[in-house]
């Protein structure tokens, strides 16, 4: 087997600060696959919150920083579809009048992958020897499914997880209502949306809801726990890195 290129982890800020075990799960996965992993120090945030709020000048600064940090990375892997969407599709817009930076952004965009996309489409693996004994439902987050077209890959991976029973929810690709600062500016609308999401999640009877974006999962978890609803969230990386019997990955 030819040596796979070193994977540079692009750890979404929410994962870094609030869900570090998701990042660790990714490291485990690549260790298991014998793929060298590195974590470019100095990475912060891709700039998405500013971009989506219209503050493109601030977003541009964040993007510049990102390009600097990941300049030499061979492949960049992120456990978040919306951040990958930001780098791949919005960075070129930010530099549309600066040809050199634009080219750099496009090159880096081409090397940036969402985790499940990289595993399935590039590495060609679906079976990671994981086990997760629970009824689980999958949420298609917006940018991941619509902009990056990633729907098949996470399902292919989940189908190979021992003990996992995937129960599809109705309207799995309906937005959970997070939307970054939207969730703070329009809390009532945002909450009504996540309640609808939770309605479809609970209807499956699943114990866990998983997905490829921690921001949506954080929103779902935050609402579910506020309402004491019987469902837990788990990032797909945690499921895929989990081995052994009933002891599930938790959010500790």
């Amino acid at each position: 087997m030819t040596q796979q290129p070193t994977v540079s982890l692009f750890i979404q800020c929410l994962v870094d600060h609030m869900y570090p075990h998701v990042g660790e799960a990714m490291v485990n996965l690549f260790d298991r696959l014998d793929i060298p992993v590195t974590y470019p120090d100095g990475q912060t945030c891709c700039g998405q919150p500013a971009f989506n709020s219209g503050h493109r000048q601030s977003a541009r600064k964040a993007a510049l920083h990102f390009l600097q940090v990941f300049r030499d990375s061979e492949v960049i892997i992120c456990p978040s579809g919306s951040c990958v969407h930001m780098v791949r599709h919005h960075y070129p817009q930010l530099f549309k009048d600066e040809p050199d930076l634009m080219q750099m952004a496009e090159r880096i965009g081409d090397r940036t992958y969402e985790l499940t996309e990289y595993l399935v489409d590039v590495l060609g693996v679906t079976d990671l020897g994981a086990s997760f004994h629970a009824k689980t439902t999958y949420h298609d987050s917006c940018h991941l499914s619509r902009s990056l077209g990633i729907r098949r890959q996470p399902r292919a991976l989940l189908s190979k997880v021992a003990g996992l029973e995937l129960i599809e929810m109705e309207n799995s690709d309906t937005c959970c209502g997070f939307g970054g600062t939207f969730s703070i500016h329009y809390p009532e609308i945002s909450t009504a949306m996540v309640d609808e999401k939770l309605r479809t999640i609970l209807a499956t009877g699943a114990e866990y809801v998983t997905g490829c974006d921690i921001s949506c999962l954080m929103h779902i978890q935050g609402r579910a726990q506020k309402r004491n609803l019987p469902v837990q969230v788990v990032h797909i990386a945690e499921i895929l890195s989990h081995q052994g019997e009933a002891d599930h990955a938790g959010n500790k």
């Binding site: 917006c142 619509r146 939307g179 609308i189």
Partner: peptide, 11 residues
């Protein structure tokens, strides 16, 4: 202008 999540379903 601000009151949506930019989820892309409309597109």
């Amino acid at each position: 202008c601000k009151g949506e999540t930019l989820c892309g379903a409309c597109k």
